[in-house]
């Protein structure tokens, strides 16, 4: 019944190297500042109370869980549904508010690590949700099934990709080796994502029946959304490709660091970005299978999207 403070996606302080934390703080601060400007420009004054109350609703909505099996439960994280209801810019602000208050008041995620958590959940989560949502929404051409299919996929992808980002951050910080962190985080969140997807569809079904106007079906996308769409695509592809690569060749991270000349500066602890991982005799076929699964899903989704686009263009030409 009580709010549970432990979620595997919220990285606490101490687990990220100072450099990774600060770089991600800067990236998140720039993204949030830009989103704030866009929200201020595009949206009416009515939006301020709406965003604040929805942030509270997402926080409270995380309590609404359902039992899956053996003590595990599915529950809502919210990036996808916030994106669908409010559009990408306001969703970034809402998720920033939720994640910041969780860290500040409930110690759910660290304060120095907050930049990284904001990046994973408010930036990557929202951009990927938006990318998946609008891509398939266009294909559904305003039909209602689109909303549900897309809601589930957006929720699932946003969580899985965000967890890959978290795993890579841990690996870059030298806290958890990539070939363990990526499959573990990815694998857990592929399951959590199913719960999130199911709840998101349930919520969209309810809203579609009660207030279809809130879902903006068939409305034109707001200006500047193409940039978010592209950003979501790029983030999803980079993270989906990079993390299995890092996982399969953990020394690859070190190789990149060497090429960048990081290693020369990585002597002092202040710049200890990439430590030495060596894996004596660990042949983890199970992990490799999970990674292969992630790659497979991404490829299948890409192919499906491509085919659907071709199908869609044919009648118009």
């Amino acid at each position: 019944m009580l709010y549970s403070p432990v979620q595997p996606m919220h990285i606490p302080d101490g687990f990220l190297s100072t450099l990774v934390s600060i770089v991600l703080w800067v990236i998140s601060a720039i993204s949030v500042a830009y989103a704030l400007r866009r929200v201020g420009k595009d949206l009416g004054e009515r939006q301020a109370p709406l965003m604040g109350v929805l942030a509270a609703a997402i926080f409270a909505g995380q309590m609404l869980n359902f039992t899956v099996a053996g003590g595990t439960s599915g529950h809502l994280l919210g990036a996808a549904i916030a994106t669908i209801l409010l559009g990408p810019w306001a969703a970034v602000i809402v998720m920033t508010t939720v994640v910041s208050v969780q860290a500040l008041i409930f110690q759910d995620g660290g304060l120095l690590a907050l930049g990284a958590n904001l990046f994973n959940m408010a930036v990557v989560g929202v951009a990927v949700s938006y990318f998946v949502y609008t891509s398939i929404q266009k294909l559904a051409r305003g039909k209602s099934w689109g909303v549900f299919v897309v809601g589930a996929l957006a929720a699932w992808f946003s969580i899985v990709i965000a967890s890959l980002a978290a795993a890579l951050e841990l690996a870059l910080s030298g806290t958890s080796p990539a070939n363990i962190a990526v499959p573990a985080m990815g694998g857990i969140h592929m399951l959590i994502g199913v719960g999130e997807g199911l709840i998101t569809v349930g919520a969209l079904t309810f809203l579609y029946a009660a207030r279809p106007d809130l879902l903006h079906i068939g409305e034109a996308a707001p200006k500047g959304s193409a940039a978010v769409w592209t950003g979501g695509l790029v983030l999803a592809v980079i993270l989906a490709v990079l993390s299995p690569l890092a996982s399969a060749h953990p020394d690859g991270l070190e190789w990149v660091a060497e090429q960048q000349g990081f290693l020369d500066t990585a002597q002092g602890p202040l710049y200890n970005v990439i430590p030495d991982y060596v894996f004596p005799g660990i042949t983890n076929e199970a992990f490799a299978t999970i990674v292969a699964g992630i790659v497979g899903v991404v490829i299948v989704f890409g192919v499906a999207l491509g085919v659907a686009y071709v199908q869609r263009k044919r009648p118009t030409t």
Binding site: L50, G52, A60, L64, G74, T200, G202, L204, F206
Partner: peptide, 24 residues
Amino acid sequence: SVAWRARVAGGMAGSLFLRAFERS
């Protein structure tokens, strides 16, 4: 079933969001 429970939880989340919209 799990799907049914998920739908119920989803409906609850949906109605929570709707109440939040109306409250705002």
